[in-house]
Amino acid sequence: MASDPSPADLIPLSPRDLVVLTVMAEGPIHGYGIVTAAQGRFGSTVPLDPANLYRSLKRLMRDGVVLEAEGEAADGRRTYALTPLGRRVLDLEVARLRVLTEAALRARGGEGVGDDAPEPA
């Protein structure tokens, strides 16, 4: 784990990391749960596959945003949860995105620029 990074260094998040953190914000969850919850909530806007899921999780754990929860699942599946740092990162990223999104919506509503939203990544 890196030593005490500031949340601001960790954003912007990649879309996939954002999805993972969002799902996790509701409580500890195992890998399969993350994929199905992401599918249910985001459909195919951000496809999540096993390889990239664990790539994400590895990276997020390295950064201290996510940790492996202890003994949650009975069937031996590992569960993952947000750290306090993770929650701050998520909040910060959401606030950042909200500013961007509202600006983009205003711009589109006012001047009819088009439907290209800025990529948060």
Partner: peptide
């Protein structure tokens, strides 16, 4: 680190 988990999810 997570091979078995990823395959299980798949």
């Amino acid at each position: 680190t997570h091979g078995a988990d990823a395959v299980a999810v798949f």
